[in-house]
Design a protein around this nucleic acid. Structure first.
Length: 193
DNA sequence: GCGACAG
DNA sequence: ATCTTGTCGC
């Protein structure tokens, strides 16, 4: 099964288009997931003309396996993103800074056909190499992302490394901060009800 | 065999 | 991710 999933990721990585995000980002969205045992709570926070918050709740049984995070969180994240098509989607996890260049941000970007960037709190693969004052994440001699502060940013789909660097300069995205805060808040609400 | 290992 | 106390520092 794991072999099949890895093949799926290789197919996904072949569909990735690292092209410049030209359109102005009017609606920025961020998604995160919190857990209460086997119950997952996904929250999508969108900031644009109006502020939107979507949630999704459900059993998450697939185990956490480094490199296969998408199997655990992508399904419920997609539920929370139903009906939403942001100009840019930020995902808690890596994009192409992944063994098969197919982290959860990349999988979501390809499946939903939306520009995505992966923002992770820790490294999965690659080494940090400084160049021109920037800490690039290098994998197999290729720059696949950047480290800014304590976070790792990498292209998911439909964005360039330059777009990602630009985003990383803005500091940790508020939409992800909010998605993280709210997912944990809603989890607490579940414990009570 | 050993170390690394998103959330 | 989640489980958890105190402690160090701005």
């Amino acid at each position: 099964m794991v072999d099949f999933l890895k093949l799926f990721q290789k197919v996904i990585s072949r569909e990735v288009k690292l092209v410049k995000l030209n359109k102005e980002v009017r609606e920025l969205c961020g998604v995160d997931v919190a857990y209460w045992g086997e119950t997952g709570v996904a929250v999508a926070v969108c900031e644009g003309e109006k502020r939107l918050i979507n949630t999704a709740k459900g059993k998450v049984t697939f185990p956490y396996i480094p490199g296969l995070l998408f199997m655990r969180e992508a399904p419920i994240m997609i539920k929370a993103l139903e009906g939403i098509s942001p100009d840019l989607l930020l995902v808690d996890g890596h994009g192409i800074a992944h063994p098969r260049e197919s982290g959860i941000a990349t999988v979501l970007g390809v499946l939903l056909e939306v520009p995505t960037v992966g923002v992770a709190k820790s490294k999965l693969v690659g080494e940090v190499v400084e160049e021109n004052g920037l800490n690039y994440l290098v994998l197999n001699g290729k720059k696949v992302g950047v480290k800014s502060g304590k976070y790792y940013y990498s292209p998911g789909n439909l964005v360039t490394l330059e777009d990602v660097i630009e985003l990383s300069r803005q500091g940790y995205p508020s939409v992800l901060r909010e998605a993280d805060r709210l997912s944990k808040k809603f989890r607490e609400d579940l414990k009570l009800s």
